[in-house]
Design a protein around this nucleic acid. Structure first.
Length: 508
DNA sequence: TCTGGGGTCCTAGGACCC
DNA sequence: TCTGGGGTCCTAGGACCC
């Protein structure tokens, strides 16, 4: 809690949807919904036009389609979002060395640490200038909150949405918070809200009045104490520039529940390999392998195994994941599978192997040895090169290897995974036609694909339809949003690829 | 045609050690 | 053989966030 409102929180407005509208002139001013387009997809971001129909983040796509049947439904294009995010983060980096990204579209900045501002007036000027710069560089709008703490800066940016700036003068925060619902405070979700409501507390003032002991008794030591502090407007958490990731994981929800054990095992092994690819791309290794299984009834369980030492060997992780699966009952069907690695270390298996061979004597104590381990040396031979593009779930078909024969009931094979592999031409994807040039897929089906030919800086373009196997039509990369602005993803990209989840949560 | 994917932090019990 | 107390590690689950 500082005396001047020099902690800035930036939140881009309806980020994914806004990027799509910037890239696709025909969608400007129209309801746009970005998310998973498969039968089990959810909304990642809805444009403000779509929100008027009641569409919210994290809503099942099927429900969104009922509410806004005429909206444009697009698959997320993370590479573009990452590029634009990099441009925004670069602007933040000019304000201060202390920039803490929370996701692709959100970050805290400590303006005092950068000498960019020292009081309310200078902070406001920096905030407005930043919003103008973001608009100039990306063509998008962002909302800014300024306050003396992280919590209040975030609340302020929420109040500022869309396309605004709100500054909370230090000293006014308690009065400001008092009438607000408990959900306003970070860390209060549906469960805690319920819990508190049953105890008769619905506003922040109720929490402050209850006292710390009461909240600790109700919610536990850590949660209770931090909630009480926040209710009083106390928050001393510093802006932290870089935090190392503590886990890496991948998961897939299947369009149709999996029943065949052979198929389930095959998917687990694929996920393990994908997970290791990400791990190695980050230059890390991990010690604990986690398997996640969501069953047909949405009940979810995890099983984990801690190895004797950290590994980035795909064989070791795959075999550990397979062992964990052996102990899980999948009767009734599997909706989701996930594989993760935690207990991350900075070194890779090669380093350990080098160490072990260097210190020949101590060979027996090889730290990298693992239960059931396939020797460390040969394991990595078949590992695919880490490729940035390869990790991006853009909805394209990603299985190069055909899955084993599906068991009984596995009729609709259609490429399995969450990537919705059947959709060779995913809605929203960039394409290029030999004659008509750059465009994007508006829809496809029945052997036809509809493409709208337009570019970010062109007028709304016209639509043409082709056969899905038209040789003149090919997938292509994204175009820059603003002509002349280089498309090089910055190094300061948040660790998570998350969308915008909570912005749609309901408030009292 | 209900409920994604990637993370973080906390709790709690048992094992194990001193 | 009526009984300790603390610390750390491992596992599983849950809440929350974007």
């Amino acid at each position: 809690m500082r005396a001047a409102p020099t902690i800035l929180h930036l939140d881009m407005d309806a980020f994914f949807a806004a990027v799509e509208q910037a890239a696709k002139p025909s969608l400007r001013g129209k309801p746009v919904i970005v998310g998973g387009l498969g039968p089990r997809g959810v909304v990642a971001t809805a444009s403000y036009e779509a929100r008027r129909f009641g569409v919210r983040s994290a809503m099942p796509m099927a429900q969104a389609r009922r509410l806004a049947p005429n909206a444009a439904y697009l698959v997320p294009r993370f590479t573009v979002y990452r590029t634009v995010s990099g441009q925004v983060m670069e602007l933040l980096g000019r304000l201060s060395p202390l920039v803490e990204p929370l996701s692709l579209d959100e970050a805290f900045v400590d303006l005092e640490a950068g000498g960019a501002a020292y009081d309310g007036a200078s902070a406001r000027a920096v905030g407005e200038r930043l919003r103008a710069d973001i608009r100039a560089v990306t063509g998008l709008t962002g909302s800014v909150g300024l306050a003396g703490s992280k919590m209040l800066a975030k609340i302020a940016s929420e109040e500022a949405k869309p396309d605004g700036l709100v500054l909370i003068e230090p000293g006014t925060e308690r009065a400001l918070l008092a009438p607000m619902g408990v959900r306003t405070l970070p860390g209060v979700g549906p469960a805690t809200e319920d819990h508190l409501r049953r105890a008769g507390m619905t506003t922040v003032a109720d929490l402050a009045e209850a006292g710390e002991d009461e909240l600790v008794r109700l919610l536990g030591k850590a949660h209770g104490a931090s909630l009480y502090a926040m209710a009083l407007g106390r928050d001393d958490r510093p802006v932290v520039a870089e935090r190392d990731a503590k886990s890496v994981s991948v998961e897939d929800t299947f369009d149709v529940d999996l029943h065949d054990r052979v198929r389930v095992r095959w998917e687990v092994e694929r996920l393990a390999e994908r997970c290791v690819r990400r791990l190695r791309a980050a230059g890390r290794s991990g010690r604990t392998v986690v398997l996640k299984v969501r069953r047909y009834d949405f009940s979810t369980l995890t099983r984990s195994e801690t190895l004797r030492g950290p590994t980035d060997d795909p064989v070791v992780v795959r075999e550990a994941a397979a062992r964990l699966l052996d102990a899980v009952d999948t009767t009734g069907g599997v909706r989701l599978l996930g594989v993760g690695v935690t207990g991350l270390a900075d070194f890779t298996q090669e380093d350990l192997f080098a160490q072990a061979t260097a210190g020949e004597q101590a060979g027996a104590a090889d730290a990298a040895e693992v239960p059931g381990g396939a020797g460390g040396a040969e394991g990595s031979a078949g590992a695919p090169e880490p490729s940035a593009a390869g990790e991006v779930p853009q909805g394209g078909a990603e299985a190069e290897v055909p899955p084993p024969e599906a068991g009984p009931g596995g009729g609709a094979e259609a490429g399995g995974g969450a990537g919705a592999g059947e959709r060779r031409w995913a809605a929203g994807a960039d394409v290029r036609h030999a004659v008509y040039g750059a465009g994007w897929v508006q829809g496809s089906g029945l052997g036809r694909v509809t493409v709208r030919f337009e570019e970010p800086w062109s007028a709304p373009g016209r639509v043409r339809t082709f056969r899905t196997d038209d040789p003149d039509l090919e997938p292509s990369g994204p175009l820059p949003l603003v002509p002349g602005v280089a498309q090089s993803p910055s190094a300061t990209v948040p660790t998570s690829l998350s969308g915008e989840g909570a912005e749609g949560r309901s408030r009292p």
